[in-house]
Each structure stands twice: as C-alpha cells, then as structure tokens.
C-alpha cells in the first residue's frame, strides 16, 4: 500500500487541553496498571505520554504535546532488526513480534525518536512500544487515543487525509500555526504528524536528521558488501599466487646456484682425482 493510503495519526498542539484522556485510554486498551496522570515519559507500561512545552517567545505560554511511536514510513527499527521482529505493516502501524526477537536492542539504539522501551526487570523481556492499535485499525476502527480525544487534537485517518486536514487547518488559521507539518518529510516521513503554534525541537524532529529515511545511511554501505567481499577474496587469491610464485622462483634460483656450485666443485674434484690417478 502507498504511504499516502496507510493509517496515520495527526496531533495538533493548539487543540490539546492536556486532559490526559488519550493516555488513559491507551493504558486501558493495553491493560496497563498505574496512574495515567503521572505518565511523564513513555515506558514499558505506557506507550504514550503527555509533556509540556512553552512558547520560545513567551515562557508562560505552555502547550501539551504527546510523545509516542512515530510509525515512520521507512522505520530505522524495522531496517536494523536482525531477525525481522519489527514490521512496517501494509496498514501503516509498525508492529513487534516477541517470538522472533532475540533482544539485541538495536531498535532502541537506532530509533531517532528514542521510542522503544524495554522490560529491564523481566528474565523474558520484550520491546514495548505503541502499535497504533493495529488490532482495532485492522477492523476499521480508530485508535484508542483518537477515539478518546474530544478536542480533535488526536485524530486518526489515512496519511493523505491527515496531511490534507493539517494543511487546511494551517490555511484557515495561519496566525495559530507555525506553517510546518512535523513528520511530513522528516526522516523520509512519519505516520504520526504534528501541528504546532511555534517551531518545537522537543518533538524530536531534530533538524540534523534531514529528510532522508534513516535506513539509507546504513544501506549505502551495506549494498557495497558483495563487491567488497569479492574484491577482498580475489585480491587475497592473487596475492597468494604472486608471493608463492615469487618465493618459488627465488628458491629455484637459489637451488640452481647451489647445484651449479656443486657441479663446479665436483668437476674440480674429479679433475684433481684424475691428475692424482696419473701421478
């Protein structure tokens, strides 16, 4: 399925009241215990969190934003997993299969948004992160967080629909928005999009990241591997043959020299012997 048709989430900072219903609904859906109002960071038992960010021009002007898996169009985690335990589904959500996972945690290191969490205290640990309610969305329902939101701050739809919605929101109230849809192009595009009244680095969209999908950085090198392997192998074979030949020639010449010397000596001895015989 084209990225445009995949399921996505739009989060609008200007509409969020910070009520926390989305976090509560998420935890309920996942069956997590704990107080949703105290979730300040994602964890193995909270797939999304609410944090505050203030207007860089007016520190009293505070907004709430959600942190959750961005379900990248070309996800780092999926590309780095050595066993394919993470999968970018046709539907859009990035899902995890614990039965495949060997627990190397490369996904956690590679994620540019620091999303995956780990069950550090379990002897049989799993990676934990938002799966964009894959089960609900497969049935055509919205995510738990989108359903819970009564302000239109978190909405669910196809990536194309949501980009359109975001653009029209910016167009209708240009004064309320910073004219940028976070996640439209960053790291090759994400499936969780953000609208904000001012530029925000807290969303994790580090300008350093650029618009190339992250897997490109490693693939550029990985695709050279067959060539490198063949070149290394061929060079080694050639060098083995060359040095071997060089040594053989050297040994052969040395032997010839010795033989020539021996022959000369033998001849000399022989003639001496003959002379002696005559004497």
């Amino acid at each position: 399925m084209e990225a445009a048709q995949q399921r996505a989430i739009l989060f609008d900072l200007t509409r969020c009241s910070g009520c926390g219903k989305c976090v509560e609904a998420c935890m309920q859906k996942q069956g997590f215990e704990g107080d949703p109002s105290k979730v300040k960071d994602m964890s193995a038992t909270a797939y999304c969190s609410l944090n505050t960010v203030s207007n860089p021009e007016d520190s009293d002007d505070e907004y709430t934003y959600r942190d959750l898996c961005r379900h990248c169009v070309e996800p780092s985690c999926v590309s780095v997993c050595p066993v394919g335990a993470l999968d970018k589904t046709e539907l859009g959500p990035v899902v995890y299969d614990a039965d495949k996972c060997m627990g190397c945690r490369y996904c956690m290191t590679a994620c540019p948004f620091n999303v995956p969490r780990y069950e550090w205290d379990s002897p049989v640990p799993t990676v934990r992160k938002c799966d964009m309610c894959f089960d609900l969305q497969s049935k055509g329902e919205d995510t738990a967080c989108a359903t819970a939101c009564s302000y239109g701050a978190t909405i669910c739809g196809t990536r194309e629909e949501l980009l359109e919605e975001a653009r029209s929101r910016i167009e209708e109230d240009p004064d309320d928005y910073y004219p940028h849809i976070y996640g439209e192009h960053e790291v090759g595009g994400t499936s969780v999009l953000f609208l904000s009244p001012f530029p925000v680095e807290e969303l994790g969209f580090d300008p350093k990241l650029g618009t190339d999908p992250m897997p490109v950085y490693t693939w550029r090198v990985l695709e050279k591997i067959p060539g490198v392997a063949i070149t290394a192998g061929a060079t080694m074979c050639a060098l083995w043959w060359l040095t071997n030949r060089r040594n053989a020639v050297r040994d052969h010449e040395a032997r010839e020299k010795i033989q020539a010397k021996a022959a000369k000596a033998a001849k000399k001895n022989g003639s001496n012997h003959e002379e002696n015989g005559h004497g």
Binding site: V80, P82, V83, M102
Partner: peptide, 21 residues
C-alpha cells in the same frame, strides 16, 4: 541479549537491511 535462547534466529529469519544481521 535479552532473549539469548533466540540467538540462532538470524540464521532462519533474514533481514538483509540490518547491519546486525
């Protein structure tokens, strides 16, 4: 490894885009 008993998985579960693989 969190799940070391699965250390053999890269042998059968391929993902050639992964450097770790």
């Amino acid at each position: 490894l969190g799940r070391p008993w699965n250390i053999w998985h890269p042998m059968v579960m391929w993902n050639p885009t992964s450097v770790m693989f």
